[in-house]
Amino acid sequence: MRPEDVPLLFQELAREFADVTDMSVAATGSLARGDHRTGASGDIVSNLDLVHVVAEDADVPETRAVVGRKMRRISDAFRIETTSVIARLPAFRQAGHAHYRISMRPEWFCDGLGLGPDAFSCPGHDEDDPRTALAWMMQPVPYYLAKATILDPATNLAKARRAALRLADRFDLAQMRDDLDNLPRALRTLIAERGVTPLESTARYLDAPTHPAIAQLVRDAVFVEGMGLSSADSMVILLPSVPN
């Protein structure tokens, strides 16, 4: 998909979900932020990331089926890998500082839950506690560090560093900027100096960064924190079909 096709992609997503009444759907990630990656050919190489918010646990299986059908059409039409995550409404509301919330494009493709435009600016129930925001905003750093242990180390380490720089810029953390080559140490120092109670995902990584299953352990914790679901229940990933 070419960069100039992104507006058309978003228009098609709005049409695709126009008749949906039991979830709210928005884009998140690099395409939503406008900082997606392109390859040497000029085609977009980033995934399309969507978040689908549902009200009840009982809605999850049907939502997965609906998302699978609709995103199959989108993935094939635009020749792009799509990653959809399903979030339970209570977790979505609580995770106001989560990376996927901060990265959301401020427009619903459908808003069956009536969350409205305020959902894009609401930082969560602990908005007045900067240490809570700090704990949430450091979450992507160990996530990508853990992911780098099993998949594409160069790319995921670069993502961890970019997340650390966003964290440093947001909270004016000179020490974090100066210690990008040892991010576990930088995180431990930050937690100790700022009196932060880290999220479970961060604590799991820092307790055992070389554990052979650390990538899965951290990913599962990240999804439970941000989505209220395991990664297996939350994620729907689709690759474009191979042409006949």
Rank of each mutant, 00 (worst) to 15 (best):
D35L: 13
E12P: 00
C122V: 04
V20G: 04
P3H: 13
T82W: 11
P3M: 13
A192W: 06
P240K: 12
A58T: 10
G39D: 03
V53Q: 08
V54R: 06
F120E: 01
G226P: 01
P106R: 08
A213E: 14
P3E: 14
L89N: 02
H52N: 06
I214Q: 02
D181T: 10
G96I: 08
P117A: 10
S234E: 00
V236D: 01
P123N: 07
A163S: 15
K147R: 15
D118F: 04
D49A: 06
R170H: 13
I86E: 01
V25L: 12
N47V: 04
I86K: 05
P61F: 05
L151A: 06
L190H: 14
A32E: 08
R2C: 00
S41L: 08
S230A: 10
G42N: 04
H125D: 10
L180F: 11
K70H: 14
V6N: 10
T189F: 11
R170T: 15
L13I: 06
D57T: 09
A168E: 13
G114C: 04
G195T: 02
L115N: 07
H97E: 04
R15S: 13
R73D: 04
M104Q: 11
S231Q: 10
S24G: 01
R15W: 14
R177D: 07
A119V: 05
N244C: 01
T197C: 02
D220I: 03
G195S: 01
L115I: 05
A27P: 07
G34E: 11
L13E: 03
E4P: 03
E4M: 00
R2K: 13
M227A: 12
S103F: 01
H99P: 00
L190I: 09
V25H: 05
F109V: 12
L157D: 04
T21Q: 15
R188A: 15
V25G: 00
R194Q: 14
R37H: 09
P90N: 00
F10L: 07
G228K: 01
D169T: 11
L238D: 05
A215N: 07
A164L: 13
R69T: 03
T38W: 06
F17K: 15
F171N: 11
A87M: 05
R101L: 01
N47K: 12
A192M: 11
A168G: 12
L183T: 04
A65M: 08
P7R: 14
W108E: 03
G114T: 02
